[in-house]
Design a protein around this nucleic acid. Structure first.
Lengths: 153, 153
DNA sequence: CCAACATAGTTGATGCTTCAACCATTCCCT
DNA sequence: AGGGAATGGTTGAAGCATCAACTATGTTGG
């Protein structure tokens, strides 16, 4: 086994800042959404993707991919959302294995309310904190990382 | 209630790239550590912080702060690490409320092995993927975010 | 045609995280 | 001194994520 290529001091500093920062950041986002709107970030993400889809509905697999979740996790989360009345599932006529998840009107309304607060939080702790050119760098970097990671397994 | 200041298209693109990318990235890190070394990322982080502390030991509260974890979570995670023999807790002589967590030799050895693989993963999916100047931007940005967020509650 | 395989989605068990409640000790203020 | 607040840490319950196993349907090659 060859010697690992350790990170240099600057790389280590930057990587750690990212790790710590992103952990703390999602924690804040999560608590904010949960206390104010009773939604976890992953629930919120699902509502967002659905709201943007044509007819506000998507096949489960596609939704899972969009929201970066495993199918299993999506299934569970969807059940919760369904029992809250924010999402409804029904089977797909073409492919009998398939299931459509679609946003209910109630779900859309809940999302609209949540998004108003959420965007403020995102500004307060992220957008308004970093330099615009650093924001671009972040976008560029993570787009590449996503490409490198490939589709969800 | 005033109109929310929505993100513009570019801000939204960058923010989403970050959210999706970081979710998927930590997922990979986690699975990698767990399958190869039986450690979760949060366990790993704890071992790292302890290994860097003087005498390889820290007070629980300080460790929690360093590892960006709640005290409760740290308590639970530490119990698991202790039962694996990687960490040991004992009480602090000065402050009878206090508890020191310290890394065992076995813990240090486990960390050394895990770190070798981990650094490769970090390179493969992060360091080697982003431009050096974008990495700097990320470090800068998240350092600011951390400052904005303040200490762990 | 049909056997083997692939895809879509769900489920239940297990394990980790979060939250609130809790005990013990120390600090602070009068 | 001593009552009240603050700090350090743990615990148990409840909620959420992960994994492997499973059903059902669709696709493909011989």
């Amino acid at each position: 086994m060859s010697e690992p290529r350790w990170l240099d001091a600057a790389q280590q500093r930057d990587w750690r800042a990212y790790v710590d920062g992103s952990v703390r950041l999602t924690e804040v986002m999560d608590r904010d959404l949960k206390t104010k709107h009773g939604l976890s970030v992953s629930e919120y993400e699902i509502l967002v993707r659905l709201s943007e889809a044509p007819e506000r509905r998507l096949r489960m697999a596609e939704l899972a991919e969009n929201a970066s979740q495993s199918r299993s996790r999506l299934s569970h989360t969807c059940s919760r959302l369904e029992s809250k009345g924010l999402v409804k599932r029904d089977s797909c006529p073409n492919d009998k294995r398939g299931v459509f998840a679609h946003l209910t009107d109630e779900g859309y309304a809940a999302l609209e309310k949540a998004a108003r607060d959420h965007v403020e939080t995102v500004r307060t702790y992220f957008i308004d904190v970093v330099q615009p050119e650093d924001l671009e760098a972040i976008g560029r970097a993570f787009a590449l990382i996503l490409k490198r990671l490939g589709p969800t397994t």
